[in-house]
């Protein structure tokens, strides 16, 4: 007999965009379409919470980075906005009217107003991942050692922007924010503390309270930098599909929620519904002794995940919870 029910919160918005017949570009540029996609998902699936789009280009675009926006693919930053100490020194921290930020805040506000039967979480990028998009990801990896002062200043500017963005997401009525910091997973635990956690913590301390939760997502963590995630102070930690969840949860205090980690591509998108059900049931069985576990996808579900697979995921959760 199971002792507690498990909540299910897959990170997904693309299935909603597809359900309302819009393109990815429509949704990432128009807050109304974005909202309609999230609302549709809340009507179709019994997710314990909703999330807005995990778009890791909004903040970089606000700083002035060029963004490639194909019709049905996730936007990507290209080029390099800053490349030296002078460029970083003169980089202006944008306000919340820049780029597509107002559309994302609109989507957050509309979702919070219209979806009242479950919490809605906004989304933002983490400081190190944002800095990597502005400075070039390969270059920042070396510059943390070669030019630490320059990178420290860049991280400070990124953090200041993310802080005000999260504050606005909070004021829009969202229950929290999923902060995606995948680039920190490319660092050692010690470097992750120095170049990511230190800055994530500033955001957490500024916005997290009883009404607003930070969910720190790091799908690059294969188990080597869990300590740095815990030290952020985020009330919930979200792990990618390469993490060994039973091992991970043993390293996390039981007052912190642990979320993860069904493979969004290899299982949700590419496997059949029977396999999705089996993998979900297996993960639930492995984690059944932990009341702080929330079952989720390992990352944002990509476009064109079969509807039957999402249903199979929720059915496996239902079957597990029926045994409680």
């Amino acid at each position: 007999m199971r002792t507690h029910r498990v909540a299910a919160v897959p990170i997904m918005t693309h299935p909603g965009i597809e359900l309302i017949g819009k393109t990815v570009r429509d949704a990432v540029t128009d807050g109304q379409v974005h909202f309609q996609a999230v609302k549709k998902l809340s009507e179709v699936y019994p997710s314990a919470a909703c999330t807005t789009i995990m778009d890791l280009t909004v903040e970089a675009e606000a700083f002035g980075a060029p963004v490639n926006m194909p019709e049905n693919e996730i936007p990507t930053v290209y080029g390099r906005l800053v490349g030296d100490a002078d460029g970083v020194a003169s980089l202006q921290v944008p306000d919340l009217t820049a780029g597509r930020v107002p559309q994302y805040l609109l989507a957050n506000r509309l979702c919070a107003q219209a979806i009242t039967d479950r919490p809605v979480f906004g989304g933002c990028i983490g400081p190190f991942s944002l800095a990597g998009r502005l400075y070039d990801m390969s270059e920042i990896m070396m510059a943390i050692y070669i030019e630490p002062d320059t990178i420290s200043l860049l991280l400070d500017k990124c953090t200041r922007f993310i802080m005000q963005y999260c504050q606005a997401i909070k004021e829009a009525g969202s229950a929290g924010v999923v902060m995606a910091e995948p680039a920190a997973g490319l660092l050692s635990d010690e470097d992750s503390v120095l170049f990511s956690t230190k800055y994530v913590k500033r955001v957490v301390e500024a916005v997290q309270d009883d009404s607003f939760t930070v969910i720190l997502h790091n799908c690059g963590n294969t188990g080597h930098c869990t300590r740095s995630m815990v030290e952020s102070g985020a009330r919930a930690l979200h792990f990618g599909n390469r993490a060994d969840m039973p091992r991970i949860i043993a390293e996390v205090p039981d007052y912190v929620v642990v979320m993860g980690n069904i493979d969004p591509v290899g299982v949700f998108k590419q496997a059949d519904s029977q396999e999705v059900g089996l993998r979900t049931s297996e993960l639930l069985r492995q984690m059944s002794g932990h009341s702080n576990f929330v079952v989720s996808s390992g990352c944002d579900l990509p476009p064109l995940v079969p509807e039957s697979n999402i249903k199979a995921f929720f059915q496996a959760v239902d079957e597990f919870n029926e045994q409680v």
Binding site: S138, M141, M142, I144, Y145, L186, L187, S188, D191, T222, H224
Partner: peptide, 13 residues
């Protein structure tokens, strides 16, 4: 997992 991306990039450089 004894070194990570930054260290590897610096070795390559």
């Amino acid at each position: 997992n004894k070194i990570f991306v930054p260290q590897m990039l610096l070795s390559a450089k």
